[in-house]
Design a protein around this nucleic acid. Structure first.
Lengths: 331, 331
DNA sequence: TTCGCAAATGAAAACGGTTGTATAAGTTTT
DNA sequence: AAAACTTATACAACCGTTTTCATTTGCGAA
């Protein structure tokens, strides 16, 4: 980056005013005579002047930049969240620094974001270790969880009510007469699975007086292959239905069953959770809890702007409504 | 953002050296006595000092930040590119500012990225209007196209050979005896479709002496619904096979056919282009050109680092190898 | 006309670093 | 032991803004 071509100083000189005045017109300060303003704007136009956001950030101590930490953008769930975030960020003139953490280097990523002087951070992912928690506390940068839960309820967050959602769909399956319903989970070190999604599932079983046996719980990674493999275990368990926490996994389970000549939904029913467009691709199409992923992103960004403005949050843990879309994998 | 807690000045004072020296140890400059270095590092550790990247950027005129412009992260093709980019960016200690353009505000997005003093830009998308081209020229910031083509060959780029890829798969279908093969395209204002993908398809037809009629070319957006709709048109055209430029569209075509009791691959064959994991979800699974999307991202980022270092590019337009994966939608 | 006050402008000090140049401290050479 | 180099460190200018504070200007009222 060589020396910047045209600076505020050049504009000031050309317009015959001080840089302070230029700064004022650039920032829309009202205390500038209309005439002066026009003159300056003309020069800005002519010189094609563009304020240096870095210098501006240093002087004003406002970077108009936020950080977003995501396990993996490649996963549609997260990219949708990111999209929601970006859209409202652009609306508020914030720029986004995006980093993939793979849920591994969370606190390193966090640190380097701080170095960039981000004004806030949107965190996605369900593993929040003490180290990270510490750093968040020490550097009082606003952090909001987006589609991710904090068991300790310290960080503000935006989610749907996973417990209810899972409870409802499980109950739905129970009403269809199933006695053995499998729970196809993501990694069990993520509390969102153990403390929320599983809890809802379990609640429905208990309420219906159904036995829960360990072989009904299988867990893997959030992808198709993993789902396909787990399909075998589900099959072996003798379950006649499954609730699945991820659409790609669900597609895996479905296709496994199909490949074993187990007909869905006649012999086996499946409900998944994220309602991504993947649910439409399979045959039969996947019945799913519907959740406003894009909105979760958008709302969490909106919350962050409030926090960055020093405003109070009226809701610390925002719960967005979910629904249900019955498609081909349920009767 | 209130006043930064601990600055380089604090460290200098505590360590009894000048800030210049602190700066040197932070930046790994060799001209520092080992003893001094240790002393300073201890203080840094103790004070939990973290350099302010903004100030650093201003002083050094290096932001260690690059911009990436993407039509829509939500599309797996692009998120996968982005992932490749991020991984090598992290390797080189660059941070990424990500913006979704929807192929609309390209030059605005570009401008605001420049304001942030990004050291380079990775551009994804196939619409490069004169306005944007102008801005790129004026502000000599390195720009590399990632998985996107520039008909005018002005901007360095990383892609696969779309013409050959399409040619090959079309030829493959012709060899299966098809006389009427549809071309399911994305938007026709994108040169990547008209000048590359379609050309390859056409070449195969011509070579085989097959007639090309306009009803064999249908175009829509890169999503499932669009593909499903186009499926109807393809069906009407009397085609017995189709090459499709996007996996989700291909899934749409496939499912449309299936819903019309047209059996794939017996009565209809399909080949798609991106080989995303979506190809595995459908039944039958989609045969596809295979392309190293992640690598395209990674390589383009690598190219950008070279450009940012003022190095020469040995290849202006990098072509990565592609392949073919025959699955269920072809015989 | 002159005053007084609000509005418009300018001068200069930050913001937190990097970096070129000068100086001080060590090492070799002779 | 002095001269001639190296190597380590300090000083201070600079990066391009914002922002405080002081000053000037403009204008209606006295």
């Amino acid at each position: 980056m060589e020396k910047q071509t045209v600076t505020i100083y050049d504009v000031a000189r050309e317009a015959g005013v001080s840089m302070a005045t230029v700064s004022r017109v650039v920032n829309g300060n009202t205390n500038v005579r209309a005439e002066t303003k026009e003159k300056v704007e003309a020069v800005i136009e002519r010189l094609d002047y563009r304020p240096n956001a870095v210098a501006r950030g240093l002087a004003s101590r406002k970077s108009t930049t936020i950080g977003i930490i995501v396990p993996d953008v490649t996963n549609v769930y997260f990219s949708e969240l990111a999209r929601g975030i970006d859209d409202v960020a652009q609306m508020y003139n914030y720029q986004i620094i995006l980093t993939n953490s793979d849920e591994k280097n969370n606190s390193n990523v966090f640190e380097s974001l701080l170095g960039k002087q981000v004004e806030g951070i949107l965190y996605m992912g369900n593993i929040i270790d003490d180290n990270l928690r510490d750093k968040i506390k020490k550097n009082n940068v606003p952090v909001v969880l987006s589609g991710s839960v904090d068991v300790e309820k310290q960080l503000p967050s935006v989610n749907i009510d996973y417990v209810s959602a899972m409870y409802e769909v499980t109950k739905h399956l129970i009403e269809h007469g199933h006695q053995k319903i499998a729970f196809v989970s993501g990694p069990l070190d993520e509390t969102i699975n153990t403390e929320f999604k599983f809890k809802g599932y379990q609640k429905a079983l208990v309420e219906a007086g159904l036995d829960y046996t360990d072989d009904l719980l299988v867990s893997g990674d959030y992808n198709y292959q993993s789902g396909y493999q787990l399909g075998a275990m589900v099959h072996d368990s003798g379950a006649t239905a499954a609730v699945v926490v991820d659409d790609e996994m669900a597609a895996g389970v479905l296709n496994y069953m199909t490949d074993q000549d187990v007909v869905t939904p006649d012999d086996f029913e499946i409900v998944t959770l994220n309602n991504s467009h993947i649910t439409l691709l399979t045959r039969p199409q996947l019945s799913s809890v519907t959740q406003p992923i894009y909105d979760i992103g958008a709302v969490s960004m909106r919350m962050l702007t409030k926090l960055m403005n020093g405003e109070e949050l009226d809701t610390h843990d925002m719960i967005l409504p979910h629904g249900y879309a019955g498609r081909g994998t349920t009767k």
